[in-house]
Amino acid sequence: MLDTFLEALSLLGRLDEHVLAIVWLSFKVGLSTVTLATLIGLPLGALVAVASFPGRSIATVVLNGMMGLPSVVVGVIIYLILSRSGPLGGFGLLYSPPAMILAQTVLVVPLMAALTRQIIEDAWREYANEFRSMRFSLRHTIVSLLYDCRFSLVVAVLAGMGRSLSEVGAVMIVGGNIEGFTRTMTTAIALETAKGDLPLSLALGMVLLSVVLVLNAGAYNLRQWAMRKYG
């Protein structure tokens, strides 16, 4: 156990180009996923928080439930959709980064929307009178609430980034873990573990962990700064 750990540490000292390419791809996929999921999930969560429509409570329950969606299930569904014999097969997207981004977006949007809904619902209680008196449209209400909660929403975005970076089931299935093309940190870890190369997978795991820690530390500092600046 200790030997494995020490060997992993020594591997970290000589991160080669090959490993850095994997880390970089993870980032690209993660950032693209989070960008897309932010554009969809935040307004969606805010909409469910603010709009009154029949079935709103059902939408809330569905959103919360989908947070726990197993990534493998999403992977298989997206696989079947993108497969050449599936409905979107004509685009030839399977086993490519866009397929991974798509699958992860499906996975991450409910998570980000559900967190956003909670945050926005609290803010909405505070602002409802003001915004109504200013005759804000639904769009203005959502935009202003998202803007007002921007620093709290970092948590939602970060949760999405964390899930995207650490997720393995969906990217493995739709990406195919192709070396130099769709191999991310998590699928590489799965592969190295399968090959019995535990030090290397541990080293990759440490890279993943430090990335997530750095992101969280950054977000924490951002919130501290925002709290001082904006109250």
């Binding site: 497969s83 050449r84 014999s85 599936g86 097969g89 399977l94 195919g176 873990n177 192709i178 070396e179």
Partner: peptide, 21 residues
């Protein structure tokens, strides 16, 4: 020509090919 290897079990590999992937 770049070869993208999707490593699966033989059965899964054949199924993948059957779906045209």
């Amino acid at each position: 020509i770049k070869v993208k290897v999707v490593a699966l079990g033989t059965g899964q590999a054949l199924d993948t090919a059957r779906r045209g992937d």
